[in-house]
Simulated scan of single mutants.
Amino acid sequence: MASRLRRTFERTGLYTAACLSIAVAVADLAGWLDLIAPGGTIQKITLLVLGSMALVVTLEVDGFAKLDEIDAKVDAVRRAVAQGFEQGLVAVHPNLANEDYLRYVKQARQVTILNTWIPNLQRLKESLGDALDRRAEVRILLLYPNSMVASLRDDALRARGRSNPEWNVRSGVRHNLGILKELVTEKRRRAGHLKVKVYNSLPSAAVYKADTHYYVSVFLHGQLAIESPQLEIQGSGSLLGRQFQQELDTLWEIGVEIDPLDWERDLERKRL
């Protein structure tokens, strides 16, 4: 509203100046300017120049209005981006790119992965080992393989007529635990920096976290979480960061710790 009113005043002033410029030109041709400023050539030139400038600006006023519209759109985009950062959302990706996540793992002091099981753990293994070598804390949350939720997730992965023997929660969790055991024994790493828990609850999301950077996805039918769209979130204090950090904390509290060096016996001994 204020912009329209300002534009109306601008146009009124420019139209008035343009009309005066035409009147000045006519008056000059008729010799009337000599009555106002006898022998004032400089004054005549000044009046004609100012009048011509007013006429040109009047013709371009719509162009200025379009520039105002562009500025308004830029401001709207800037506000939307700022709001997105306040909420924590950095970008949305079609799937989880291991190399993108590992860039953050490389410098992280705490790494947390929440999933039913981690299909890409073998690709992350070396970087997680490097994190343990520099004494970063690595926390892994896996679904208890004997839970009812594991069967339900298996059914969901077989949806839409798709069947893959590798998409199996029970075998996937056990395979992950085997990889984690290798992780701490290959170079005689300190197992104390690797914390592994299994949970018997319905997970709401898969989360790959490095310090305060998150990649979050949901569990869709017929599709692995790492193959689903990923929300890239920055900041544990942001709106989205707080929500998913709370989910991580809740499942971590629910979970039962498993010794990666003796995981087979722990799974049999600890009933959830």
Rank of each mutant, 00 (worst) to 15 (best):
V149K: 09
G237R: 09
L142H: 05
R189T: 09
Q83R: 13
S171N: 09
L33M: 10
E186T: 13
N146Y: 07
Q234S: 15
G13W: 02
E69I: 00
D130S: 10
I42E: 14
S163K: 07
T212C: 05
S171A: 12
V57R: 13
V169K: 02
E166M: 06
D211C: 03
G237I: 02
V74C: 01
Q246I: 03
T185A: 11
D154F: 01
Q245L: 09
Q223T: 13
S147R: 05
L121C: 06
A210I: 08
Q122G: 08
R6N: 06
D75Q: 11
A25Q: 11
N115L: 02
D62P: 00
G161Q: 09
R265K: 11
Q230F: 02
V198C: 10
N115W: 01
D262Y: 04
L202D: 12
A27P: 00
R188Q: 14
V26P: 01
G241W: 06
E126G: 06
M148E: 14
H221D: 15
R153L: 09
G192S: 14
V216N: 05
R269Y: 01
L248N: 07
E126N: 13
V216R: 06
A91V: 03
P38Y: 01
E247Q: 08
L14S: 07
A72V: 03
T212M: 08
A150N: 08
R189W: 08
C19E: 10
G63R: 06
V184L: 10
A65W: 04
V169C: 13
R123A: 14
S228Y: 02
Q223Y: 01
V105F: 04
L194H: 13
E86Q: 15
R188L: 13
A82W: 00
T16P: 01
K106P: 00
D262M: 03
S52V: 13
Y144T: 04
R265S: 13
A30P: 00
A136H: 05
R174A: 11
P38H: 01
I258D: 07
T250H: 12
D211P: 05
I140T: 12
L102H: 05
S163M: 10
G237T: 07
S151M: 12
G237W: 03
A27G: 14
R162K: 11
V24K: 02
G129L: 05
V57F: 10
A210E: 14
Y15R: 10
I36E: 04
P38K: 03
L33S: 13
R269M: 05
P165I: 07
P260T: 11
V74Q: 06
Y144W: 08
